[in-house]
Design a protein around this nucleic acid. Structure first.
Ligand SMILES: NC(=O)c1ccc[n+]([C@@H]2O[C@H](COP(=O)([O-])OP(=O)(O)OC[C@H]3O[C@@H](n4cnc5c(N)ncnc54)[C@H](O)[C@@H]3O)[C@@H](O)[C@H]2O)c1
Ligand SMILES: NC(=O)c1ccc[n+]([C@@H]2O[C@H](COP(=O)([O-])OP(=O)(O)OC[C@H]3O[C@@H](n4cnc5c(N)ncnc54)[C@H](O)[C@@H]3O)[C@@H](O)[C@H]2O)c1
Lengths: 236, 236
DNA sequence: AGGCACTTGTGAACGGGTGCACAAAGTTGA
DNA sequence: TCAACTTTGTGCACCCGTTCACAAGTGCCT
């Protein structure tokens, strides 16, 4: 158990946590792995193995005490302390993020909003006054910021990220559609809408192909516009 | 190569595609796997293996022709056809999504915006008039919508999702912090800001722990407030 | 007390993905 | 034409994560 929870498990803990808090609000005192797994959309075996990485927090024959498990997962994720976040780029997306209540709900505080555009600087968004991006280093240092959120256009993202890292930020959440280069002491996570849509498109397409193949099995290979392969031999 | 590209590969293709279009804009005609891998933030061996699932589209000793590879990846992802998307819930996030240019940029068209709030219905956002959510079934049928984006508050999400599925949508992108239940013919992908932040928080915390352990290696295990378990046959 | 029903925690088999290392294939230059 | 160099495509070994299956606990009922 000790020493190193698998990344795949860490990525699921927040999901369990959400399911557990929902259960807690409904007044549920204990859950079995089966029930919690269903609520979290995973298999029960996987859930149990995941939780076993944290310790033995269940009771055989009974299940898990909801509140206790919430505390244990919160502690493991580091949610018992408050993490300060700075949002850089207060455009469409930055506005939405700044106004998002779920942000503060669990251990995250927006320390500042930064933007390069004079027309936006000074505006109040989500209860905070937008400050000029030149204040970045000052804000990070004074406010003890841990996490930087990059919501600028793609061309500015690497530059902003570099400044965040130089100022001491070691975790970055990136919404811009670029691969940010950082020293390996820094962790970057990327949220990319286009990527998600393209993955969905792939599966849509595949599903259409499958649907057709049920009707006309023999033709399925011929579906591709021009054989594709036509080339490959190349070099005409 | 034929018959089934690994999921892990599919998830990376959009990243390669983005890197390639950037290169194309810069006027680059060919790239080696090494260069492209660097631009995409992966190892070159992984990149080559990924591309090999699509076919043999490179030239040994030279690399890959950028435009040709863009076309092949686009075709594989199904981006040569236009996918129609409906956004349900035009609040903070829905506004941002509707105004997002990168949406349309590659094969995705926002067919309609839907909301349940009378004060928002009728408003024009991103060039589209927001329609009442009661039009959902009609919109999906008439516009031939393939992909549904759920940007409503959590309590409404499952209901909206059910209606989308019933109306014939087979791909859903969910921004609400709930696990959507769907028949297994439908694919759901979830974008969850809180999850991302919590994962970052975990690594922040771990990094802090490591930093301390450099200073006081012997104490690191003792850092935990109170062993918690009481149980756990473990521990010195 | 003892048997029964239930649930956790985990060893072990399995499967998919990653990275290495290299032969095959192509280019360049003499 | 040939040799030196570059780069792809892939067989293979390895590793991480998932899934199965069950022994070991726990509570309840008789
Ligand atoms: N809007 C969406 O739904 C959406 C979805 C996915 C990804 N994204 C990405 O998120 C990013 C932001 O999107 P958006 O729609 O909010 O764009 P936007 O143009 O509305 O906002 C960008 C903001 O960043 C500011 N900015 C520009 N350069 C800056 C700098 N160097 N330092 C600080 N601030 C700077 C601009 O002044 C502007 O206010 C983009 O990279 C976009 O591709 C947006
Ligand atoms: N704002 C963010 O940055 C952000 C980030 C991550 C996740 N989210 C999630 O995205 C969702 C939307 O967030 P938001 O900030 O835009 O919330 P919001 O309250 O601003 O917007 C929600 C919109 O959905 C509409 N709506 C409610 N019920 C509906 C229904 N049944 N059918 C159609 N429309 C309905 C409301 O009228 C409102 O306009 C939430 O679930 C939130 O947790 C938001």
């Amino acid at each position: 158990m000790r020493q190193g929870i698998p990344d795949a498990t860490v990525a699921r803990l927040p999901v369990y946590l959400r399911a557990l808090t929902t259960l807690a609000e409904d007044g549920t005192a204990t859950v079995s792995s089966e029930e919690l797994a269903a609520a979290a959309g995973v298999g029960s075996a996987k859930l149990r193995k995941d939780l076993s990485h944290l310790g033995s927090y269940g009771t055989r024959g009974v299940g898990y005490e909801v509140e206790y498990l919430v505390y244990q997962i919160s502690r493991e994720l580091g949610l018992t302390q408050d993490w300060r976040v700075v949002i850089v780029g207060v455009g469409n997306l930055g506005h939405a993020l700044a106004n998002y209540g779920g942000f503060v709900s669990r251990g995250f505080t927006v320390a500042a909003l930064l933007d390069a555009d004079d027309r936006i600087v000074g505006e109040t968004v989500g209860g905070l006054v937008v400050r000029p991006v030149d204040d970045l280093e000052e804000v990070v240092a004074d406010q003890g910021v841990h996490i930087g959120v990059v919501a600028t256009p793609a061309p500015a993202a690497q530059d902003v990220c570099d400044r965040l890292v130089a100022a001491g930020v070691t975790s970055v959440l990136n919404f811009a559609p670029v691969v940010l280069l950082v020293p390996d002491t820094v962790m970057v996570r990327k949220v990319d809408l286009s990527t998600e849509l393209q993955i969905l498109a792939f599966h849509e397409q595949r599903q259409v192909a499958n649907r057709l193949s049920v009707d006309v099995p023999a033709r399925v290979v011929a579906l591709e516009p021009d054989g594709g392969t036509g080339r490959a031999g190349v070099s005409p």
